[in-house]
Amino acid sequence: MNCIQIAGRLIGPDQPPYVIAELSANHNGRIETALQIVEEAKRAGADAVKLQTYKPDTITLDSDGEEFRIKGGLWDGRRLYDLYEEAHMPWDWHKFLFDHARKVGTTIFSSPFDSTAIDLLEDLNAPAYKIASFEAVDLPLIKYAAGTGKPMIISTGMADADEIQEAIDAAREGGCRELAILHCVSGYPAPADDYNLHTIGDMIDRFGLVTGLSDHTLDNTTAITSVALGASIIEKHFTLDRGGGGPDDSFSLEPAEMAALCAGAKTAWQALGKVDYGRKSSEQGNVKFRRSLYFIRDLKAGDVITRDCIRSVRPGFGLAPKNLEAVLGRKVTRDVRSSTAVLPELIDSWPPR
């Protein structure tokens, strides 16, 4: 499994998790809010901000038909067209947001939902593309994005293993050389017990790609846990105020929570480390508090050491307790006082042959 690179940042299992703050619809119709979200994502420690680039007319039809109306869930009863009209990021905002992200020193890219969105993002020199879960079956879109030669991340919510492979094949056929996939559950919000995080390890083995998590749960537990199972990327919706009333606010992280995610994910990755049974640097000072053998009676030179003469106690300056039986029955080489560590030079004919 190779690393990928977005705007100079290596992403893969040997690198700290790459955290993406998904701005989505959380601008709530105000470019000032969108610009502030970019700043707060940077301040919280996110590696990138991600937009969504579509218009209501490029993602659905302006229809009153029942199949174009949402039934159940967070947006129950709404027409798709009306929801996307409210939620979409106006295209003339994109340049301001890309310029602002570069000004504050953070990476910005987007999920395009049709070829015209990719054309716009290419004009802005987007460093990567993200394919949303609902578009993972749009193989022509994937191929078109792949044709830019930019790194690509594909979310796999609702996709089975065959559909994931088809999306990967389309990306490769289109020319994508740096590809990652995200395990995802396309519920808004999604319950943690739907995530089946062990799937991440299987995806890594099955597809051989940098793999991460697009997390729609309401806290950070699932996302941080995913790092221990191999996730190299974490994507979370991000807002200034969960009570802001926008379409995505209610299942998004606020700034303090995003900061906690960035810190927690990095700590989890650092804690994984490598297989290592050696003594750790933080343990060195405590070695002296291990148990060892100590004399608990005064002895004269030539006295035989019996069980009532020594004990295994803390600290650890004497012979290790595993030597107890070998010490018993031997003579001391000189006078010793109680509370003296049992050392090799105090034992006759040590070490035993």
Rank of each mutant, 00 (worst) to 15 (best):
T106I: 15
M89Q: 14
M89P: 04
E135N: 13
R79I: 04
A101E: 03
K103T: 12
F96Y: 10
L121K: 06
Y129S: 03
W91Y: 06
L120G: 08
T107N: 06
F109T: 00
A128S: 01
A101M: 05
K95P: 02
G105R: 12
F96V: 13
P112N: 06
A136M: 15
A128M: 06
P127A: 05
H100I: 12
P127V: 01
I131N: 08
A101H: 05
A136W: 02
P127Q: 04
W93F: 03
K130G: 11
A101S: 10
E122L: 01
D123E: 15
E122C: 06
S133L: 07
A87K: 04
H100K: 15
L97G: 06
K130S: 04
L124E: 09
R79G: 12
F109C: 04
W93A: 04
H88I: 11
V104D: 01
Y129E: 03
S111W: 09
L80R: 13
A117I: 07
S111P: 09
Y129N: 02
F109M: 09
F113I: 02
G77F: 13
D82S: 10
P90R: 09
R102I: 07
D123H: 08
A132L: 09
A117W: 08
H100Q: 08
R78W: 11
G77A: 12
H88T: 02
K130L: 06
V104M: 09
R102M: 00
I118T: 15
A128T: 08
L120K: 08
D82G: 04
N125E: 15
H100G: 09
A126G: 05
S115E: 15
F98Q: 00
G105H: 05
R102N: 11
K130E: 06
M89H: 13
K95L: 01
D82L: 07
F98W: 04
F96H: 14
L120M: 11
